[in-house]
Amino acid sequence: MRNLFLFLREHYYYFLFLFLETISLILFFNYNEFQGSALYSVSNAVSGSVNNMFSSISEYFSLRKTNRVLVEEMAKLHSRIPEAFYITDRNVFYKKDSVVNLEYKYISAKVISNSTNKRNNFLMINKGSIHGIVNHMGVIIGNKIVGQVVSVSPHFSWIMSMLNKDSRISGKFKKNDQLVNVEWNGGNYRKGHVREIPKHIRMVAGDTIITSGNSDIFPEGLLIGTISDFRIAQDENFNNGEILFSTDFNSLGYVEVVVDLMRREKEDLKSSFKSTQ
């Protein structure tokens, strides 16, 4: 026993190193479990309030741009309210309320931290569970995609950006509805990769890719980007392409979180089907 203590004392430096390194790596690789812990909510509250303070200073620098985006958005919405339409038909049709149900609701939030220079990028926004945000909700800016919520605290949410190795978005060609997958392989934050384009699709540079609506995260028809380059594979079943993102991930001021009001119903349907099998 005494020899053991002497041995430990002599080599304590190595043991302490291994101990600290193991803790760090365990926390790093089990990050998802760690997010539920009390220590996490404390550190999240600290970084959240500091980031919040910092962004309340830096947001003044982008006021001009934020204004322009808001005015554009307002003009677009104005053109869609009923008063903007002139009814040419003398036969009046009524919409029954029960026929049109609200499916998506949007929560606006301010981005308080963001990055585009890492392999895995995340954003933090200043709204959280008390505003009704839960995990797996989509995040958009205007009609363009940003990412999805991966963790929420009462006042803040942590969002996995499209610029992340775990992000994979189900998209489709706007012109013919063919499904593809969009990913980001690191490097330039303006460009992503389009995978699994069926061979028979004829692509041209400039084709628009929109969200497919298959994934419960984003509604259908949001802009992902345009094809900027593609490669016809000789020996594989699918072609690959390069996409220029419509979203400028480096200048996100205010974003919107998509609340799918019918998500519960969709999930219930899926689980009830599974339980019958």
Binding site: I23, S24, L27, F28, F29, N44, V50, S113, F122, W158
Partner: peptide
Amino acid sequence: IFTNTIGLNAASTV
């Protein structure tokens, strides 16, 4: 804590 990558910078710095 600030980059929300718990363990990553700690492991490299140690």
